[in-house]
Design a protein around this nucleic acid. Sequence first.
DNA 1: TTCACTGCAAATGCTTTGCAGCGCC
DNA 2: GGCGCTGCAAAGCATTTGCAGTGAA
Lengths: 153, 153
Amino acid sequence: MSQGATAGSGRVPASAPAPGREQRVTKQRLAVSAALDDLADFVSTQELHRFLQERGTTVSLATSYRILQSLADDGLVDVLRNADGEAVYRRCAVTGHHHHLLCRNCGKAVEVEAPAVEAWAARIAKEHGFSAVEHTVEIFGLCPDCTQLQAGH
Amino acid sequence: MSQGATAGSGRVPASAPAPGREQRVTKQRLAVSAALDDLADFVSTQELHRFLQERGTTVSLATSYRILQSLADDGLVDVLRNADGEAVYRRCAVTGHHHHLLCRNCGKAVEVEAPAVEAWAARIAKEHGFSAVEHTVEIFGLCPDCTQLQAGH
DNA sequence: TTCACTGCAAATGCTTTGCAGCGCC
DNA sequence: GGCGCTGCAAAGCATTTGCAGTGAA
C-alpha cells in the first residue's frame, strides 16, 4: 500500500506522457513488436522472451521487460495480470481506453468499452477535488463455456 | 495462465476438497479471521500482516500467507489481484458493495457508491454470457491536499 | 559524435518451504 | 499422546537496476 498504485508499470504517472517522446527503432524493439503481433494473445514477459529465443531472435530478458513496460506506458499494449500474478501483455485491438471482462476459470478476456463509466469516474473524482485521475475496472466471472462445465459438475 | 484457481499456491487441486477437512482453531487463525472482518475490504497478505502487528497480535508473515491461502482454498474468502500483482483477500459476505477513490500520494481513500456502474457491469456480463460475476473498480488520483503540494512544487 | 538502448549480473521484494517445537483435539 | 500448526530463516522466482559497451540518428 505504501508503495502505491503505479498500476503495474513501475513508473511515476507524470500526468503528461510527453508527446515528443521519441523511441529509437532497434532490432530488439521490432522483434518484440513482431512477436506480439504473431502471438495475438496475452503473454507474460517470460513467455515472450522464451518465444523470441525459440524463434532465434536474441533479446535479453531484462530488455524484454523494459520494452514491454515501455510499450505499455505508451498505451500500445494492454497489461493485465494472470492467475499467478504475473503481468501479461497483448497488442491492443482497440487503441482507445477500455476495460476487461475476464473469465476467472480459463482466463479468457473480452475487451469492453464503457464511456458511461469513464464519465462517472471523472465526475466522482471532480466532486471530491481529485486531480490527475486514472482508474481501473475489471469484471470477473465465468465465461459461457466454463459456466456449462460448472453446471455439468 | 493455463492453470486456473489455486492462484500461486503450490497445491495439488485434489478435485474434491474433502468435506470432513477439519481445520484447527488456533489463536492465529482467529486473529486473521477477525482482522478480515474488521478490514472488510481487499487487503494483501503484507497489509494484513502489518495490520495484525499494529494491533498487537503476533502472527508470523509465513503463517499469514498460509492461513490466507487455506481460507481461499476453502472458499471462505475472495481472492483477487491488485494492480501490483499481489494477491488480495476479502471476506466473502460483503455488506454493502462499494468502490474507492484513492490518493496515490498519501493513500487517503474515499468510499463511493456507483449503482450505475453496478448495473453496467451486470449488463455487459450478461451480454457476453458470463455468470457468477464480480467486479472491481478503483479510481486513482491526487487528493485536494496533494494536488496543492504538487502545484506548489 | 552523441546519447538512448542493450546485455549481463547483482539486487530487490513478495511468496514459499524445510524443520523443530508447541498446542489443539 | 498424536499430529497439524507456527515461527524462523533460507530458498525460490519474477522483476528491477547499475554500469559499460553498442548502435541509431
